[in-house]
């Protein structure tokens, strides 16, 4: 292979037909995991063999809200916290579409928390990918509903004193048909989880732990994105079908505690159809 030359746009990535490639490189920070999740989503569309015209991508507000702008399927960048009601309307009106919500923890679980529990309760046929970076990254690193106890943020310089949400436990309790948690390093596993969600009829929830080197990593001395991903690699242990979802809290201060990942729930439950 010849040495790559700067300013060379002659090489085209094989998945570029499912991306709005003219907008790349995207605005996300170096080391941010949202790009990997978008990449995995378009790869799942490619591998599923379905027509991209049958896919809809809905995103909320925040860094992960940019996802809808980069994928070359029908996509909607909705208002803050309202990605789920918007997607619910699409899924209920046209059940033949595969609707995927790619959004962040601040959008889905804070302002959109009520929509989340009721979409899961109704078991609407949606695939929800929640990119969890433990804070409000775009607005400057404020503490959110998933910030672990003791983790620092702009609004908690001494460390957060609140109990965070345990997202897989919450999704299971609300009645989701499929619940998984992976990190961006488990890219093959969460691509498979997205593929399973696309096949499955009902509310499918995948939490993806993603590094946020600019906001969360910097304040918590986690280093660059690579260092945070390396921390996940050392601490994650895979437990598919784990029973004790209440024990899945993430401790970001004590690096001896394991982070449990896997496909936890895969049940048959009647989906909501109008």
């Amino acid at each position: 292979m010849s040495t790559p030359q700067p300013n060379d746009f002659s090489v085209v990535h094989p998945i570029d037909h499912l991306m709005r490639a003219d907008r790349l490189p995207h605005i996300l920070c170096a080391g941010c995991g949202i790009g990997t999740v978008i990449h995995a989503y378009v790869r799942a569309i490619d591998e599923s063999g379905t027509d991209p015209d049958q896919h809809v991508c809905v995103s909320g507000i925040g860094c992960s809200g940019r996802a809808a702008g980069y994928v070359n399927v029908d996509s909607y960048h909705s208002t803050h916290g309202r990605a789920l009601p918007f997607a619910l309307g699409i899924a209920v009106h046209n059940p033949s579409l595969t609707v995927t919500v790619i959004s962040g923890d601040g959008d889905l679980m804070a302002i959109g928390g009520n929509h989340f529990i009721h979409a899961a309760r109704r078991n609407v046929n949606l695939n929800v990918i929640c990119i969890n970076n433990f804070n409000y990254g775009m607005t400057g690193g404020q503490v959110g509903p998933t910030t672990p106890i003791g983790a620092k943020g702009t609004t908690a310089p001494q460390g957060s004193i609140e109990h965070p949400f345990n997202l897989p436990y919450l999704a299971k309790a609300c009645g989701a048909s499929f619940v998984a948690r992976w990190t961006i390093l488990h890219v093959r596993q969460f691509t498979d989880a997205i593929l399973r969600s696309m096949d499955k009829d009902g509310f499918c929830f995948t939490e993806v732990l993603s590094p946020c080197p600019t906001s969360f990593g910097r304040r918590n001395k986690l280093g660059e994105g690579l260092d945070e991903v390396e921390m996940y690699r050392e601490r994650c242990h895979i437990e598919n079908g784990a029973e004790n979802l209440q024990d899945l809290d993430i401790d970001i201060v004590d690096h001896e505690q394991p982070i449990t990942v896997g496909n936890f729930v895969d049940i048959e439950r009647t989906a909501f159809h109008a």
Binding site: M1, P4, P6, D8, F9, P25, C29, E230
Partner: peptide
């Protein structure tokens, strides 16, 4: 064979760190 679109890269280092054969290095 590895193909690199150099203009898109932001130097996160994931490909270099996690290549099982250590094929890649920073330029």
């Amino acid at each position: 064979e590895v193909h690199i679109i150099t203009e898109r890269c932001k130097e996160c280092g994931y490909c270099i760190e996690y290549c099982p054969e250590k094929v890649l290095v920073y330029s």
